[in-house]
Amino acid sequence: MGSRASTLLREEEIEEIKKETGFSHSQITRLYSRFTSLDKGENGTLSREDFQRIPELAINPLGDRIINAFFPEGEDQVNFRGFMRTLAHFRPIEDNEKNKPVSEPLNSRTNKLLFAFRLYDLDRDDKISRDELLQVLRMMVGVNISDEQLGSIADRTIQEADTNGDNSISFNEFIKVLEKVDVEQKMSIRFLH
């Protein structure tokens, strides 16, 4: 049971996470108890398997890509700090944060979009190539659409987005395509207070 969960989280640590992510004190303790319940190895970090044990995530066509977003390049463990940093991207944008000029918060529109962009950018070279798009498309549709049809979907998508003619989608081109999309709503989760 999570009864001892909150005692392991030091007060200073909570303050630091609060500052970095914008989550409230009680949201942090709650997410910590969720984190510890996912941590079956009980070593203070989550592995890919810990995530895959969530059935709803396991049936998500992009499950593996989403799990990947929690892990820094080349690492296979994520601690609570890193876990919270990724989740912070999904906080809704609050009004008082919008006109804060200092550093850009993790949940800004641009950061949300960058996160979505990385979902497609498999090799992290800041470009979505035709091949990468095809691979992600294949994850989403499974065996239900033919190679040919999927190829033409990928071609069309790149054609529409590509403005500099390099046959791939850069982050700026990605922003342009999603200009009219309500990213704020589609990439925000309502965490209760």
């Binding site: 996912l38 969530i54 709803e56 995530l57 989403m140």
Partner: peptide
């Protein structure tokens, strides 16, 4: 992909 992304992260939380 945003739909799957949001659903996935919701299920993690």
């Amino acid at each position: 992909a945003l739909f799957f992304y949001k659903e996935g992260v919701e299920s993690i939380v």
